[in-house]
Amino acid sequence: MNTALWIVTVVLAVGFLAGGAALILLPKDRYRALGANQHWVDDFGATQLKVIGAIKATGALGLVLPAGVVPMLVPLAATGLALFMSGAATTRFRRNEWRYFVGDLVFIGLFGFVAWGRFALEPLT
């Protein structure tokens, strides 16, 4: 189980770090042009997008960096990112973007798996 938790954690961390970096570094129009599923950025200002990117990047780093120092931060970061993704799912729901809404639910489930696994099944010591 520990191996599965690490695989899921690292994949999520890499993906969210890349996504957060893109939001921080790219201007809003350039980020919007990256893909067809980026219509949600129309609901937010440029500064809000930078903050969202910072939250994603910080959460991604929190999934892996404190593992050897403060292990309790790993499941807390996973829990925080699950809550963050529920905000993303709410935006998708409000915009009637159902295919992407399902993707957000998958992320919530994966972050829940990591949090549950690290809190209860295989805590880091």
Rank of each mutant, 00 (worst) to 15 (best):
I7R: 05
L26H: 06
L12H: 07
V11F: 08
L23Y: 03
Y31K: 02
A22E: 09
L5S: 06
V11Q: 10
D29G: 12
A21D: 03
Y31F: 15
R30C: 02
G20N: 00
G15K: 13
L5F: 14
A21M: 09
A22T: 05
A36W: 00
V10T: 11
L23H: 07
G19V: 13
P27Y: 04
G35A: 13
R32D: 06
L5E: 01
T9I: 04
L34I: 13
K28I: 03
V11W: 11
A36I: 00
W6Y: 13
R32C: 02
N37Y: 04
V11M: 08
G15A: 15
G15W: 14
R30W: 09
R32H: 14
I24G: 02
T9H: 08
V14A: 09
L17W: 10
W6M: 09
K28Y: 12
A21R: 01
A4M: 15
L26N: 04
N2K: 09
L12P: 15
L5H: 02
L23D: 02
L34S: 10
A33W: 07
A21N: 03
K28Q: 08
W6N: 11
V11K: 11
L5Y: 05
A33K: 14
A13K: 02
G20S: 01
N2Q: 13
P27I: 03
F16M: 14
A33L: 09
R32L: 03
G35N: 06
N2T: 15
A18T: 09
F16Y: 07
A21C: 05
A21T: 06
A21V: 08
A21K: 00
A13W: 05
N37Q: 13
V11N: 14
R32F: 09
G35D: 09
L26G: 09
G20F: 00
T9R: 08
N2L: 12
V10C: 13
F16V: 02
G35I: 04
G35H: 08
L34Q: 10
A22G: 07
A21S: 09
A36M: 00
G15P: 14
W6F: 11
R32M: 04
A33V: 11
T9M: 06
L17E: 02
L12E: 12
G20I: 00
D29Q: 14
W6R: 03
L12K: 10
N37D: 15
I7C: 13
N2H: 15
K28L: 04
A4C: 15
K28M: 06
I7Y: 03
G20T: 00
N37C: 01
L26P: 10
L25R: 03
L5M: 13
V10H: 10
G35Y: 07
N2E: 14
I24C: 11
V10K: 05
D29F: 12
V10I: 15
A22K: 03
N37S: 12
T3H: 12
T3W: 15
V14I: 11
L23C: 07
L25D: 01
G19C: 11
T3Y: 14
G35V: 05
A18S: 10
R32Q: 11
N37I: 01
L34G: 06
G20P: 01
T3N: 11
G20D: 00
L17T: 02
V8T: 12
L26I: 12
K28P: 08
P27C: 01
N37P: 00
A4T: 15
R30E: 13
